[in-house]
Design a protein around this nucleic acid. Structure first.
Lengths: 345, 345
DNA sequence: GTTAGCACTCATTTCGTTAGAGTGCTAATT
DNA sequence: AATTAGCACTCTAACGAAATGAGTGCTAAC
């Protein structure tokens, strides 16, 4: 059977209506409120065909039709027209308040959640390799050294180091010199035993302090806190009757508390790049590969802070989410984010 | 009417049973499962009295009784016996993983949530006044200075400063000297115009850089990020039928997403100190002063990191929460936290 | 003072009935 | 050959009456 123009229009009408109401759509509804001028009987015949082809399905014999995952997929792929959203208000807010990228992302999550009424998550930027750009050890008081490490992405990490006995200032100056000449430009993999041995030889004494310092540097570089994920509006899920079922909703909400799970979700395989539109991907139902999301859809977008440094934004809602609006909003937002990050760089 | 021994025992039995089941408790249940050896009729008479006195109430005429807020209050005040909980497992986990206090608190929240099955929140420590202990400006590259500020509580803040034109190293050394001698020991209120003027005079040139630096310092000191709140297990609320009603649950869960709201909740007035037991406070129903928590109870405890530096832990659950266990767990936990913080100090 | 017994209340459950939305099929129409 | 009107049929949701049963309050006996 062929999916002709008319069937497509009917399918579109069914999905549009279902997105609005959340109720199964009957033939009469389509007959009345579409500009096709066909009787309900004809629609019924076509619907029967569409069902046979797998685009729609009946919850039970005498009910209207709802879109199947396949139907949604077709809708998203072919019938969605990108349009410019109204994301202006965010821009101003961000410019004022946000100092750090973290804050920006947190606010983006919140903004999206309140504007779309879906649940949102934003993963922090993932830096591919972290190299040391600058190290400084300072004596804070008799008992503490402070290690400040600047990475090549200009991220700053610091860590207090407790020491047994005070160190003379000149030793610290020397230590700083050695550390910087030896370690700058290296990533954690390149700091092997040979390098460490070289530092110790140059310093002569105070190997204990060096051990502490190197441990801190190692931890800092390996540190996975760029696994940060910001979520917002998780409870929006409760707005949609088809998702607010006791146990299912709890599952979903719990997942939103777990950063690991969030990262897994955002790490879904991409279905082919679409560079023009900021890599916006739509996952419907089982396509999410997550059991507890089988009644949901997720839209993700990839933002880029600088070459090779990117993160993801995800929006989770019911299958009948307003894809049009979500994709539009995301598209518009991504453009703005690009600008903001350019400025901050 | 007087609240004699027997009435008290019956009330206790009613509350205990209700805590377990969540269902209104009938006279027959008490008669059978308590060691009072009284017939249901007698119990009924007593219950009638207890109701008149306001300790219990009937949801409707032909139902059993449930405790009133007043009943809970009496229970909590008089019948709760502190007992040592089993919080040992936490200790080990914490010692291994936690590096920063933030992490400890985050884990405490999670631990409590999974162990009690209630929602938990932990507010970060509130430092009363922040004074500068140590400032260091460093030149990272031609375009960036790095300001590192150590506060008197050993918290470290850092901030990149963008500069128009490079600065000579000697100027930076001078700047560091001036900043440290002038600002150390001061809090933000004491950094008034006079002090700032004095710095500028000493530096002579580069007033623009100084402005930037001082701005950063000011922001850092005023920065309210010690308003941090860690929550966990918010969705546990959905476990309790009496709370999982659509709109109410959403209200509560939303509140858990808002740090400000959390702080407000944790900032409830205390009802008189009880130093021995780590200031554990119980708020029942309306006592929480929060509309959306009127069907909940909250137990809070105050932890102390060092003299004058403390934060709060809150556990939110249904009114029929297992006060005994919660208070016990908190008590035990607080002891352990004390130890941990002592070590980390 | 305690208890057995009984009438009464009222939320909850059960079950049959109805109403209505929607379908699928057939026969008539274009 | 495509479309439509009409009708029988299906199934859910809504309704209401009746049954159920947990629990009470009261009275009279122990």
């Amino acid at each position: 059977m062929e999916l002709d123009e008319r069937k497509l229009k009917i399918l579109q009408a069914i999905i549009r209506t279902y997105l609005e109401t959340g109720e199964p759509v009957g033939s009469r509804t389509i007959s009345k409120y579409s500009d096709l001028n066909l009787s309900s009987a004809t629609i019924r015949n076509e619907m029967s065909d569409l069902e046979e082809m797998g685009y729609i399905l009946q919850p039970h014999t005498s009910a209207g039709r709802i879109p199947s995952d396949k139907g949604y997929r077709l809708y998203v792929d072919t019938m969605l027209e990108a349009k410019e959203g109204e994301v202006n208000s965010l821009r101003e807010e961000l410019e004022e308040k946000a100092e750090k990228i973290d804050d920006v992302l947190q606010q983006v999550a919140k903004f999206l959640a309140t504007n779309t009424n879906y649940a949102t998550m934003v993963s922090g930027p993932r830096y591919q390799t972290k190299r040391v750009k600058f190290i400084q050890i300072t004596s804070v008081d008799g008992e503490h050294l402070l290690a400040v490490i600047v990475l090549d992405n200009n991220a700053v990490k610091n860590q207090m180091i407790r020491i047994e006995e005070p160190i003379q200032d000149e030793m610290i100056v020397k230590l700083n010199f050695i550390l910087n000449t030896t370690l700058n430009g290296l990533d954690v993999l390149e700091m092997n035993l040979a390098v460490i041995q070289r530092i110790k030889e140059q310093m002569g004494e105070h190997t204990q302090v060096i051990d502490s310092v190197l441990e801190v540097i190692g931890k800092t570089l390996v540190d996975q806190d760029d696994l940060e994920v910001y979520t917002s509006g998780a409870t929006n899920i409760l707005r949609y009757p088809e998702l607010s079922d006791q146990s299912k909703a709890a599952d979903l909400l719990n997942a939103f508390e777990e950063k690991k799970v969030m990262h897994q979700w955002l790490g879904l395989p991409e279905k082919g790049k679409d560079n023009d539109t900021h890599d916006i991907q739509v996952y419907i139902g089982d396509e999410t590969q997550v059991e507890s999301m089988k009644d949901c859809s997720m839209v993700t977008a990839t933002y880029q802070i600088q070459e090779g440094v990117y993160g993801k934004i995800g929006i989770v809602g019911p299958k009948r989410m307003d894809y049009d609006k979500v994709v539009g909003t995301l598209n518009s937002l991504m453009g703005q984010l690009d600008d903001i990050f350019k400025e901050k760089k």
